[in-house]
Design a protein around this nucleic acid. Structure first.
Lengths: 201, 201
DNA sequence: AGGTGGGGATGACAGGTGTCACGCCGAGGT
DNA sequence: ACCTCGGCGTGACACCTGTCATCCCCACCT
């Protein structure tokens, strides 16, 4: 019997996945959480062996939750189950110690197999995504550029961003200009979108 | 036995919801599709009585799919099940003839009840969302403004948008300026974000 | 016939934006 | 000691953007 923890911020999806996995005779969902920062505690309390983690969650994202599990409960394996198959996500998930990465597009019947493989110590990674994440390599953005791009995601004017990070307006423009160059974009909005698509944020 | 159709573009979510609903003795999932433009045909072929529709789907969105069902198969009821509880979505869904609207945040055990109520002819609408959709009223945007805002969503420069819709640059600026005024924003990116949040796009 | 409102367009102006050159500092590698 | 690189800053310049005034046409309503 493999003991599972589900982490997803949408209660309906969580409950549905639980119903799906409980159909398998060798799988058992022993814990469910809706926030990333509750994963470690719930995993410890429930004695989960494999954690299924969504990436987009309040409190702590799934990748950082995987890293926290790696640190605090090294025996527990984690499997990222997410909507967005962004290349950078795969890389960061593996670096954070996740054992698997599947997107929510995959057929339902394959999920149980993925869980079993992860439990037995294998890595499970969507082959298309693995290829993509090798092709465009790691993020070329510096820390500041990444930070400023996240603030630029919603199209805020430079002045607003500068105020938020306590920097001069000119400095913000310079960093964003560098990010625009590195992403091949022509405006900061486009650069932010590209960086997000690649999982660089 | 209530016969159900599931429409969601994520195969995993679709399969999981199917597992969840099939646990109920009086519910039966008789069809699953991953595109909005396959809903009517699948509903007809399977003899579904209630259709659970996600909004974001390729081909045709869930609201337009509900309208198509209303037109072609008036006896079939539809229940929107979506991630985003945007006020404008609720209004448009009801106008399109949907019988219910629930967000994916709702507890899993409430879904089966919602399906039963919809099947019996009742309306099921998240009370918070219903209130919100009454407060900020229908979209004040004209057709052009709405169209141009959707193109402005990704932060494209005015010149790009103008080329795409075959309009003069000045005209595009005028329409966007009007949209900025109506949304209370200060830039077109912000206006586009606000309009999207309210379900006006 | 006259009013109203959406759609389209032009021109002008103030202010925001992207780029570039140049400078300074501190951390890390050789 | 020297070089490199990230980070921070200034100033200048061309270009883009948001706003406003002022036209035009057409559909619709009264």
């Amino acid at each position: 019997m493999i003991r599972l923890l589900l982490a997803d911020d949408q209660a309906l999806v969580r409950g549905a996945l639980s119903a799906l996995l409980d159909l398998e005779p060798d799988l058992e969902v022993v814990a469910q959480v809706g926030r990333g920062d509750e994963v470690v505690e719930a995993a410890r309390a429930s004695g989960a062996e494999v954690c299924l983690l969504d990436i987009e969650m309040p409190g702590l994202n799934g990748i950082d939750a995987a890293a926290a599990l790696r640190r605090d409960l090294p025996g527990v394996r984690s499997l990222i189950v997410t909507t967005f198959g962004r290349p950078g996500y795969v890389r960061r998930a593996i670096e954070a110690g996740a054992s698997g990465f599947v997107v929510k597009d995959t057929p339902a019947r394959q999920l149980a197999d993925a869980v079993r493989r992860v439990h037995s110590g294998l890595r499970v990674i969507d082959p298309d995504l693995a290829a993509e994440s090798l092709i465009d390599g790691p993020s070329p953005l510096t820390g500041r550029e990444r930070e400023l791009l996240t603030y630029a995601l919603d199209g805020s004017p430079v002045a607003t961003i500068a105020a938020r990070v306590h920097l001069s307006e000119g400095t913000v423009r310079n960093h964003l200009s560098a990010a625009i160059g590195k992403t091949g974009a022509t405006t900061r909005s486009e650069a932010a979108r590209i960086a997000q698509d690649r999982g660089w944020l």
